[in-house]
C-alpha cells in the first residue's frame, strides 16, 4: 500500500492533482450542503455543463481556459439563481435548456476547430493530467478564497439556508448571500471540472452532503462530515484510479456511491 502511494507521488502530475483536487473536493462538499438543502442541486449540474461549453470554446480559440470560463460560469450562476427564484417561469426547465445548450455549443466549437478528439473525452469525463503547474496555483488560491469566505459567513449561510423568509424579515441581505453561494459554486465547478469531468463534477457537490444527512442530524456535524467524507472519497478514488488505471472522475464517484450506501445502512440501523 505504502509502496503504491510512494510510487504515485513520484509523478509530479499526480502530486498536483492530489493537492488541487483535495482542496476542490473540500470546497465542493461545503457548498454542497447549502445547495442540496436549498433545493439548488440542479444549479450545480447546470453550471458544470456551462463550464464545459466555456472551456471548449476557449480551447477552440486558443484562449486561456480558466480565465475565460470562470467569468462565463459566474455569469451563468447569477442567471440561474434569478431563474430559480422567479417562480412564475419554470426555472428547472430553463436550467436544463441552458445546460444542454452550452454542451452543444462546446461540442460544435471543438469539432469545427480540432475535430472530435481526446479533448472532448477529457472535458466530459475528466483527466488526471489536466492540472498544469499554473492551474494548480490558481486552484489552490481560489480554493483558499472559497474556504475563507465560507468560514467567515458560515452562520449567515446557515440562516439563509434554514429559513430564507425569517432571515430576510429580520434584515439579513438574503439576495447577497444567495449570490455569494452561487459565485463560490461557480468557481468550484470550473476548477473541479477538468479533473472530474463536466458530467461528473456535480456528484462531488451533491454526494457528500446527501451521504452525511443519512446519519448526522445537526447542521455543523453534516458540514464537518461532508468535508471529511469528500476528501477521503477523493483520495481513495484517486488511488483506485491509479492502481487499476480507471478514469479518475468515475472512480471518485463510485467511491462516493459506496460511502452513500454505507451511511444509508448505518442511518437505518441507528434510527430504526
Amino acid at each position: 500500500m505504502f509502496e503504491l502511494l510512494r510510487e504515485m507521488l513520484n509523478y509530479p502530475f499526480m502530486a498536483r492533482a492530489l493537492v488541487a483536487g483535495g482542496l476542490i473536493a473540500l470546497c465542493a462538499s461545503l457548498l454542497g450542503v447549502s445547495l442540496v438543502l436549498k433545493r439548488y442541486s440542479m444549479i450545480g449540474d447546470g453550471l458544470s455543463h456551462v463550464s464545459f461549453g466555456a472551456l471548449a470554446v476557449a480551447t477552440a480559440l486558443n484562449a486561456a481556459p480558466l480565465q475565460v470560463s470562470i467569468p462565463v460560469v459566474v455569469a451563468a450562476a447569477f442567471l440561474m439563481l434569478r431563474l430559480s427564484e422567479n417562480s412564475r417561469i419554470k426555472g428547472d426547465a430553463l436550467i436544463a435548456l441552458i445546460s444542454t445548450g452550452s454542451l452543444a455549443v462546446g461540442i460544435m466549437a471543438l469539432s469545427l476547430t480540432r475535430g472530435m478528439n481526446v479533448d472532448v473525452y477529457n472535458f466530459l469525463f475528466g483527466s488526471i493530467l489536466a492540472m498544469g503547474r499554473g492551474d494548480v496555483l490558481v486552484s489552490v488560491v481560489l480554493s483558499a478564497v472559497v474556504l475563507v469566505l465560507y468560514a467567515l459567513f458560515y452562520s449567515k449561510i446557515f440562516a439563509v439556508t434554514f429559513d430564507e423568509c425569517f432571515a430576510r424579515a429580520t434584515g439579513i441581505k438574503v439576495g447577497a448571500y444567495n449570490l455569494l453561494i452561487a459565485l463560490l459554486t461557480a468557481v468550484t465547478v470550473v476548477l473541479g471540472m477538468r479533473l472530474m469531468g463536466a458530467l461528473l463534477i456535480s456528484s462531488m457537490i451533491i454526494f457528500p452532503a446527501l451521504t452525511s444527512m443519512r446519519v448526522f442530524k445537526s447542521y455543523k456535524s453534516v458540514v464537518l462530515s461532508s468535508a471529511a467524507l469528500s476528501v477521503i472519497c477523493f483520495f481513495v478514488g484517486i488511488v483506485i484510479s491509479y492502481a487499476w488505471a480507471t478514469p479518475v472522475g468515475a472512480s471518485i464517484v463510485v467511491v462516493n456511491i459506496l460511502a452513500f450506501l454505507v451511511f444509508f445502512a448505518a442511518g437505518h440501523i441507528k434510527y430504526r
Binding site: 434554514f162 429559513d163 455543523k220
Partner: peptide
Amino acid sequence: FPANVWEVVLSG
C-alpha cells in the same frame, strides 16, 4: 433539514 435546536435558536 439537519439542524439542532441550539443552532436554530442561535441563528436568531
